[in-house]
């Protein structure tokens, strides 16, 4: 469809003198605005975020509805949907970076903002803020919705009980942190299928295998951190009917949170280093 008439030949739409001189130079604020516009103008962003939130809340509600054991960690149950949900933000993080390469947008992006570390920082900040907001909203809505869905006379936990607010709030960060892990992997690998493969393989498959072979290493795996360290209200080790008197140690909530931050930060730093050095 090239039937649209071209503009008036030879008439630049702006005043013929070069643009008015602007002081200073472009920086974080400008690049972050660009990244925010890019993120929000893709329909797939909104679809993915909606499915993530609905899915994670729905899972918490379903588990609450079917809970019969009032002595269980009800907060942990309510947050069970966060673990599958974070996979979506992880993939969205990958695509936020690899989509630039597959579409060629990276060339336009880098001509507008050639300082590449600044670019990745702004992209991470925008993507991190959006997924943090979504994650916290999902965690709190899951918590209250799952509590409301409890039957069998089981009382819903409240945020005032020991460790509950911390468990909900820390779980809410998992979407953002795994999303940033995906973004960093995308910056390193640059190809969507390969980067998604590494993300899913690393976060899910590898974690399951390591967890099965070695518990002491398994506790450092991201989904076990989200599922057992940061989303739990228990302060002692877990004993249950399945493991008898055996005591399972998981990382403490804040140690787990620190590990997740590290999982997000390391690929971003490597990705930024590579982005600055490689041809685009």
């Amino acid at each position: 469809m090239t039937s649209a008439a071209p503009g008036i030949p030879g008439t630049p739409a702006a005043p013929s003198a070069p643009a008015e001189r602007l002081r200073g130079h472009y920086g974080f604020a400008q690049v972050a605005r660009m990244e925010w516009i890019k993120l929000r103008t893709l329909r797939s962003t909104w679809w993915t975020l909606a499915i993530t939130a609905v899915g994670s809340v729905g899972m918490g509600v379903a588990i609450g509805f079917n809970t019969r054991n009032a002595a269980g960690d009800l907060t942990n149950n309510a947050l069970a949907g966060m673990v599958p949900g974070l996979l979506f933000t992880g993939v969205l993080g990958v695509l936020a970076m690899t989509g630039e390469y597959t579409s060629g947008t990276i060339r336009a992006t880098l001509t507008a903002a050639p300082r590449r570390v600044l670019l990745l920082a702004a992209k991470s900040a925008v993507f991190g803020a959006v997924t943090l907001a979504l994650g916290e909203a999902s965690a709190f809505v899951s918590f209250f919705a799952a509590g409301a869905a409890l039957r069998h006379g089981i009382a819903a936990p409240t945020l005032g009980q020991p460790g509950v607010l911390q468990a909900v709030a820390l779980s809410g960060t998992s979407f953002c942190l795994i999303g940033l892990l995906g973004l960093g992997l995308g910056a390193i690998i640059r190809h969507s299928p390969a980067a998604i493969g590494v993300l899913v393989g690393g976060v899910y498959v590898l974690a399951q295998m390591v967890g099965a072979f070695s518990h002491s290493a398994g506790i450092y795996m991201p989904i076990l951190i989200v599922g057992n360290s940061i989303s739990t209200t228990r302060t002692e080790c877990v004993t249950g009917p399945g493991n008898g008197a055996q005591c399972i140690h998981f990382l403490s909530p804040w140690t787990g949170f620190g590990m997740l931050c590290l999982y997000a930060a390391v690929p971003l730093v490597i990705g930024g280093w590579l982005l600055a050095r490689r041809d685009a």
Binding site: Y26, Q30, V31, R33, M34, E35, I37, K38, T41, L42, R43, S44, G99, E100, S103, G104, T105, I106, R107, A108, T109, A112, A113
Partner: peptide
């Protein structure tokens, strides 16, 4: 050098913002 899922206007608006 543009994303197939984005409108022409959104593509240019993002670059302008930068």
């Amino acid at each position: 050098a543009f994303h197939p899922g984005r409108s022409a206007r959104a593509h240019l608006a993002a670059l302008a913002a930068a």
